[in-house]
Design a protein around this nucleic acid. Structure first.
Lengths: 190, 190
DNA sequence: GACAGTCCATACGGTGGCGTACGGAGGTTC
DNA sequence: GAACCTCCGTACGCCACCGTATGGACTGTC
């Protein structure tokens, strides 16, 4: 962390991404990032034009890593129901790759920010659409499928919020799996 | 708003509360509040010892107004199922008194803040406990009741987040009532 | 080993928010 | 109406953060 090595733009973006998840937009501060990376602003302003640039890069990284990459990951599973179960299990924290929904929660306080709003809107629409597609594949008509996709997504958002704000209130381990099962069986029932 | 009248501590607390819901903890800035109230910092520092004081007051106001007051409101309804329906309808935005969950969402980015964390924990535990109590009254055993209370609460949180971040994605009007019905009938079914 | 290009530290000016000091306006009491 | 208390505006110092300017260290090339 304080290796005194040369830094790349990706290093700064990665640190900004962590700051974004931890403290939201306001935590993406140039000098704070420099301190964590063991560097100074001189390095930062060589790689980026300004604070907004690294903020935008971090937001784009989030959009790709926690939406498209996850969808691509679960798409390898052919069975729709199993795919949904895998998706929810990953999203709700079963996969230790990254904390469930840390970024979108940190973004809530600044949802109207000119750089945040469009990304948030794209991510939300994409996720709900993908969920609705799965329910269409399960045989529900488009309107019903969208309604069920919506409920599934709010269940994800709510659980993520609970985990983030008060971890001791949220179900873990077997309780979490039961939660996932309850959501899936409920939503796949006609 | 620019009436040039004398201000009370409650005026500052109310403005801080609105700022809290709109932009989170960072939005509770003394000079910003003063600007909205048509006053200056000189007034503020007569009523409060500092920024933390008004922030704490706003958090306490939220804790009371959006938890205990709402519980007291729905407690007048004797039938448990109707009471749950009323509660969810109010909580999900049917009641125009205040935006659904605006504050807790704005608090997410600073959930670890020393003044925020304890309030957030108390509110979460109180709400989940109350929901679980209702399911106990419906005849479920305590463990099952808590699980259902948890799901109901995550549905609330998720919906609130959706409304706040991307309003065009969330159900409104009849779609909202259908959403409430779906959640309640699902959770009250053995 | 000189040279050019890449990357970064230091130093500085500008801005915005916090908190304090102090004086004055407006109402109250006798 | 004079003293007094309540409330608030103005002015100031302080700190955190942004962005710029500039010189230098490091690396590869011939």
């Amino acid at each position: 962390m304080a290796e005194r090595k040369r830094l790349s733009a990706a290093d700064w973006t990665g640190e900004a991404y962590r700051a974004l998840a931890a403290g939201g937009v306001v935590a993406v501060a140039v000098e704070a990032l420099a301190g964590r990376l063991g560097a100074t602003k001189g390095s930062f302003y060589w790689h980026f034009t300004g604070r907004d640039a690294v903020l935008e890069a971090a937001l784009q990284h989030w959009e790709r890593a926690e939406t498209e990459d996850v969808i691509a990951l679960v798409e390898s599973e052919p069975d729709v129901l199993t795919r949904l179960r895998n998706l929810l299990t990953i999203a709700l924290g079963g996969h230790p790759a990254y904390r469930a929904g840390g970024v979108e929660l940190a973004l809530q306080a600044t949802a109207g920010h000119p750089l945040v709003a469009p990304v948030l809107a794209r991510v939300t629409h994409r996720r709900i659409s993908y969920l609705a597609d799965q329910f269409v594949l399960l045989g529900f008509d488009p309107t019903d499928a969208r309604q069920r996709g919506l409920i599934a997504y709010t269940a994800y958002l709510g659980h993520a919020q609970l985990v983030h704000a008060t971890p001791d209130s949220a179900p873990t381990g077997p309780g979490l799996q039961a939660y996932v099962d309850a959501v899936i069986t409920t939503l796949s029932r006609p």
